[in-house]
């Protein structure tokens, strides 16, 4: 649940989602769920000319399982807080 909570703090921020088929989508993080499925608004496809199939998409849902990376604006991340949360979660898991 660590990353679910983490992504909830990033709602409203601009992120870039790179999928496992090398397609990358940028947009505003609208919401996230426990599977780390994400919903983006104001979606733009990176390298849109190459993927005219995705042209008419403004808002989209991305299945968590097809995500490879998510680029996050580093200014919006409190890394100390994140590390502490991670240590707590790992201690709880035992």
């Amino acid at each position: 649940m660590l990353f679910y909570s983490f992504f909830k703090t990033l709602v409203g921020k601009e992120i870039a989602v790179e999928l496992k088929n090398d397609v990358a989508l940028t947009g505003t993080l609208h919401s996230v769920d426990q599977y780390l499925n994400v919903k983006l608004t104001d979606v733009q496809v990176v390298d849109a000319e190459r993927y005219p199939q995705l042209g008419a998409i403004k808002n989209c849902f991305i299945r968590g399982s097809v995500v490879r990376y998510i680029q996050i604006p580093s200014a919006d991340v409190d890394t100390e807080l994140l590390q502490d949360a991670c240590r707590k979660e790992s201690a709880q898991g035992k």
Partner: peptide, 11 residues
């Protein structure tokens, strides 16, 4: 280079 990156565990 990427400033901050979430990596999905299954990769």
């Amino acid at each position: 280079s990427i400033e901050m990156l979430f990596v999905r565990g299954d990769v």
